[in-house]
């Protein structure tokens, strides 16, 4: 049987990855949404100032 201290170390590393990668992705989604909303706001204001 694989030694406990070794085994648990790798397991924790693995689960860190399981939690960290989706978390980083979620954060990236939030940031991108925020930036896009800001861009949308800017574009709408720009359209108001320069009506066609």
């Amino acid at each position: 049987m694989l030694e406990y201290s070794v085994s648990i170390k790798y397991m924790l590393a693995g689960y860190t990855v399981f939690l960290a990668v989706p978390a980083v992705y979620l954060i990236s989604l939030v940031i991108r949404v925020r930036n896009l909303k800001r861009d949308l706001q800017t574009m709408k204001e720009f359209q108001k100032k320069n009506p066609k």
Binding site: L2, Y4, S7, I8, G14, Y15, F18
Partner: peptide, 17 residues
Amino acid sequence: EETMNYVQKIFYFHVAN
């Protein structure tokens, strides 16, 4: 698990991913 001990538990989320 008998041979791999705790590290085998990675398996469940690994397969799911």
